[in-house]
């Protein structure tokens, strides 16, 4: 590409020349980047032709090259009928809440852990808080059903002690989403906080020392030093998290959903589960995946544009 442009008129040539100079100047960086780019090309770009399946009636024996193209048939199938819109709505609402509460939670946790001065307590808290990440939803759902049981669960026992009526959290349409959001936040908060702990660890102690001299309160230190210092990581997390608005947690919802809360808890992945995965309908599954990815991509690009306007920490 560059070589061809050499023949172009003077001004463009000069621009290209300076560009080439810039590439030449950064040659070691590109040398470093090369294996990574090669990795992405081989393991991510080469198999990408599989996206075509979403537009085909994919037949296993014929493969992608031989299967018949059917245009948007599978997308129409997905959006068809009375079921899809409520499911999309549930997905968006549940995930909006999950992002709203789940995004700041690990930052707050990391800040709180950071305030602990006793090293042993600090270590224990860090280690314990990341344990739930290792529990699968199958295991957790049994425990959650027990904890939230209206007749014998500890939560309702406390509520009754306080003079409230017991609540059947898992079967009550007005509570079910709260259960999903709070359990998800609880499960992931410790593991996600690790990223912020690492970012906090990278802050130069000079800044705190200077603040110490000025006699600034702890909360102000958090506000004026810690948060601005970890802002780049926070921004990138906001951008990447914005894409998760469409990606629901299948395992969680599949294991906690029951017939009475279907109307508020059924989401895209549980809705498409039987069709796509269990029934060998590869094209349908591919269409669902593509639809979700396009939404996620739009979200991320939007968040990125906003981030670029207000900071210099956007992805690109």
């Amino acid at each position: 590409m560059q070589r061809k442009s050499m023949a172009l008129p003077h001004a463009a040539e000069r621009r290209n020349y300076s560009l080439l100079r810039r590439y030449a100047k950064h040659k070691y960086y590109f040398l470093m980047l090369l294996p990574v780019l090669a990795y992405f090309i081989i393991f991510h770009y080469v198999p990408i032709y599989g996206v075509l399946m979403a537009f085909q009636d994919y037949r296993i024996f014929k493969g992608i090259s031989g299967s018949e193209f059917v245009g948007l048939k599978h997308f129409r199938e997905l959006f068809d009928g009375i079921y899809f819109l409520p499911v999309l709505k549930n997905t968006l609402i549940i995930n909006a809440y999950k992002i709203l509460f789940g995004f700041p939670a690990p930052i707050i946790l990391a800040l709180l852990i950071n305030e602990i001065m006793r090293p042993r307590f600090k270590k224990w808290v860090q280690t314990i808080s990341y344990l739930p990440h290792f529990l699968s939803w199958i295991v957790l759902s049994g425990i959650i059903i027990e904890v939230l049981s209206p007749s014998r669960g500890i939560v309702n026992m406390i509520l009754m002690e306080l003079g409230f009526q017991p609540v059947y959290f898992l079967a009550d349409t007005s509570w079910f989403r709260s259960v999903l959001v709070s359990t998800e936040v609880w499960k992931g908060v410790g593991f996600s906080a690790i990223i912020y702990l690492a970012a906090i660890a990278g802050i130069s102690p000079d800044l705190y020392e200077a603040a110490e001299v000025d006699g600034i309160s702890r909360l102000k230190k958090v506000w004026y030093i810690t948060l601005p210092s970890i802002a780049p990581v926070i921004v990138i997390m906001i951008i990447l998290n914005s894409g998760s608005i469409i990606n629901d947690d299948f395992d969680q919802i599949f294991n906690l959903l029951n017939t009475n809360v279907q109307s508020v808890g059924d989401v895209i992945s549980t809705y498409t589960y039987t069709e796509g995965i269990a029934k060998m309908n590869y094209s349908y599954a591919a269409a669902v995946g593509l639809f979700k990815n396009v939404i996620a991509l739009i979200m991320v690009l939007t968040a990125n544009t906003i981030a670029r306007r207000f900071s210099d920490q956007a992805i690109f």
Binding site: H26, L33, L37, I64, A286, L290, I315
Partner: peptide, 30 residues
Amino acid sequence: PLSKKTLPHRPFWTALIVFTMFFSGGLIPS
């Protein structure tokens, strides 16, 4: 390298990588 603000076409190279987060060929091609 991608952290270097002076890197030429940095947004392009980053986008090349980020793109793979959203489009994958699925199980069979892999």
